[in-house]
């Protein structure tokens, strides 16, 4: 096994892949959101992640590109806060800001540090949205993903295996939101009528973990 860490470049690649996935599935996310929300999740996330990649994705010769993980995630979080508009702005924004604070001024993350940062991000989402398990929110994809990540790392899994396990759990968590009655967000206004639809936030969160698994699963260059 090679040294099992995630580099700054891989984190940027993760965000680029996330942008690609939300952009590809923009129509689908918006369709989900039109069923139980205000039909803007796809366009909001695409706009937000496009702004993020404009901010961080190009190589800056003038040295403005983040060289440390905390700088990178702070920049990502603030860009989402100012460009998304909908509730996913403060939610994903807080997620990345907390990830950055916990990761600290480092250039790589090992499995434990990645897990700690993601956990802090989840804690931020919970603090911001007051969501609990089963509320039909992004929490329902993210919390099981992190549990699976930790379980894999605890049994000797490397980052590739652990993030693949996290993606599987995120998908399962996303799918499990379908029968739920929403208790948070715009969908909660619909009460029982929110049942029978996947939650758009849980769906974009599954894409976040798909992007992470994709990125780390690629053979190192």
């Amino acid at each position: 096994m090679t040294t099992d860490t995630v580099s700054l470049d891989q984190l940027v690649a993760w965000l680029a892949r996330f942008r690609e996935l939300v952009s590809q599935q923009q129509g689908y996310l918006t369709e989900l959101d039109s069923a139980i929300g205000d039909a803007d999740h796809g366009s909001n996330m695409t706009r937000g992640m496009t702004a993020v990649m404009e901010k961080i994705g190009v190589s800056h010769d003038d040295g403005t590109q983040a060289t440390l993980v905390d700088e990178l995630f702070k920049s990502v979080g603030m860009t989402l806060v100012t460009s998304v508009g909908g509730a996913s702005g403060p939610l994903y924004g807080t997620f990345f800001l907390r990830m950055g604070t916990t990761a600290g001024p480092v250039t790589t993350l090992d499995g434990a540090a990645l897990s700690a940062a993601l956990r802090a991000g989840l804690g931020g989402v919970v603090a911001r949205g007051k969501a609990e398990a089963g509320d039909k929110t992004m929490f329902d994809a993210m919390a099981p993903a992190l549990d699976a990540l930790d379980a894999s790392l605890a049994t000797g899994g490397d980052c590739v295996t652990a993030t693949a396990a996290a993606f599987s759990a995120a998908k399962a968590g996303r799918d499990a939101t379908e029968p739920l009655v929403a208790r948070k967000g715009r969908a909660s206004y619909l009460g029982e009528r929110s049942s029978g639809h996947l939650d758009p936030g849980a769906t974009s969160t599954a894409l976040l973990f798909e992007a992470l698994a994709d990125t780390l699963g690629q053979a190192p260059a």
């Binding site: 803007d40 909001n44 706009r47 460009s83 998304v84 508009g85 909908g86 702005g89 403060p90």
Partner: peptide, 13 residues
């Protein structure tokens, strides 16, 4: 508003 005529909110604003 969230800038550029987007309906939404922005915590920094």
């Amino acid at each position: 508003g969230a800038g550029d005529g987007v309906i939404g909110t922005d915590a920094t604003k």
